Amino acid sequence: MRTDPGPLTGKVALVTGASSGLGEATALRFAELGAGVVLAARRAERCEALAARIVASGGIAHAVRADMASATDVQAMVATTLERFGRLDCAVNNAGVAGPMRTPLAEVSEADWDAVIDVNLKGTWRCMKHEIPAMLAGDGGAIVNVASIYGLKPSDVGHSTYAASKHGVIGLTRSAAADYGQCALRINAVAPGFTRSEMVDPGRPGGAEHYARMVARHSGMNRLGEAAEAANAIVWLCSPEASYINGAVLAVDGGGATRMY
Rank of each mutant, 00 (worst) to 15 (best):
R53Q: 15
R53V: 01
R53T: 09
R53F: 08
I54V: 15
V55H: 07
V55I: 09
S57L: 13
G58L: 11
G58V: 07
G59N: 05
I60M: 14
I60Y: 06
H62R: 09
H62G: 11
H62N: 01
H62D: 04
V64Q: 07
V64R: 01
V64W: 08
A66K: 00
A66C: 03
D67I: 07
M68T: 10
M68D: 09
M68Q: 13
M68I: 13
M68C: 13
S70H: 00
S70W: 06
A71C: 10
T72G: 10
D73G: 09
D73E: 06
V74S: 04
V74A: 00
Q75T: 08
A76N: 06
A76G: 06
A76C: 04
A76L: 01
V78L: 00
A79N: 03
A79D: 13
A79F: 00
T80D: 09
T80R: 04
T80F: 10
T81A: 15
T81Y: 03
T81D: 07
T81I: 10
L82I: 15
L82Q: 14
E83H: 14
R84V: 07
G86L: 00
G86P: 11
G86Q: 12
G86V: 11
R87V: 01
R87F: 12
L88N: 09
D89Y: 07
C90G: 03
C90P: 02
A91N: 04
V92N: 08
N93T: 13
N94H: 13
G96L: 08
V97E: 10
V97S: 04
A98M: 11
A98F: 09
M101S: 14
M101C: 09
R102H: 14
R102M: 15
T103P: 11
T103Y: 08
P104K: 07
P104S: 00
L105I: 13
L105N: 03
L105D: 02
L105Q: 10
A106V: 12
V108Q: 07
V108M: 01
S109D: 14
S109K: 15
S109V: 13
S109E: 12
S109T: 15
E110D: 06
E110W: 10
A111S: 14
A111C: 02
W113T: 11
D114C: 00
D114A: 14
D114V: 03
D118A: 08
V119P: 04
N120V: 06
N120G: 06
L121V: 05
L121Y: 05
L121G: 08
K122L: 12
G123I: 02
T124E: 00
T124W: 00
W125I: 04
W125C: 13
R126H: 05
C127Q: 08
M128V: 10
M128F: 10
M128A: 12
M128P: 02
M128C: 14
M128I: 11
H130D: 04
H130Q: 10
H130Y: 13
